[in-house]
Simulated assay, not measured.
Amino acid sequence: MSVFKQNHFESIMKGRRSVKVYQSDHQIPRDEMTQIIKDASSAPSSANLQPWRVVVVDSEEGKKKLRPLVMFNTRQNDTSSAMLLIFADQQYYENADYIYNLAVEQGKMPPEVRDLQLATIKAYYPALSREKANDVIRFDCGLFTMQLMLTARAYGYETNPMAGFEADQLAEAFDLDPERYTPVIIVSIGKAAEEGYPSVRLAPDQITFWR
Rank of each mutant, 00 (worst) to 15 (best):
K5D: 15
K5H: 14
Q6F: 11
Q6E: 15
H8V: 15
H8Q: 12
F9K: 04
E10G: 01
E10F: 11
S11W: 13
S11V: 09
S11M: 12
M13T: 06
K14P: 03
K14Y: 15
G15M: 15
R16G: 00
R17F: 11
R17T: 12
S18P: 05
S18Y: 02
S18F: 02
V19N: 01
K20C: 07
V21W: 00
V21A: 12
Y22R: 07
Q23V: 12
Q23I: 15
Q23T: 09
S24L: 02
D25E: 10
D25G: 03
H26W: 09
H26P: 01
Q27K: 10
Q27R: 10
Q27S: 10
I28S: 04
I28P: 03
P29F: 03
P29I: 06
R30C: 01
D31H: 09
D31Q: 06
D31K: 09
E32I: 07
E32W: 02
E32S: 03
E32N: 04
E32Y: 02
E32F: 01
M33A: 02
T34M: 06
Q35Y: 02
I36W: 05
I37S: 01
I37H: 03
I37L: 15
K38R: 11
K38W: 14
K38P: 00
D39V: 13
D39F: 09
D39E: 14
A40S: 13
S41Y: 01
S41D: 06
A43P: 03
A43L: 06
P44L: 04
P44V: 07
S45C: 08
S46G: 14
A47Q: 04
A47L: 08
N48M: 12
N48A: 14
L49V: 12
Q50R: 08
Q50G: 03
P51D: 13
P51N: 15
P51I: 10
W52A: 04
W52E: 09
V54G: 01
V54C: 05
V55T: 14
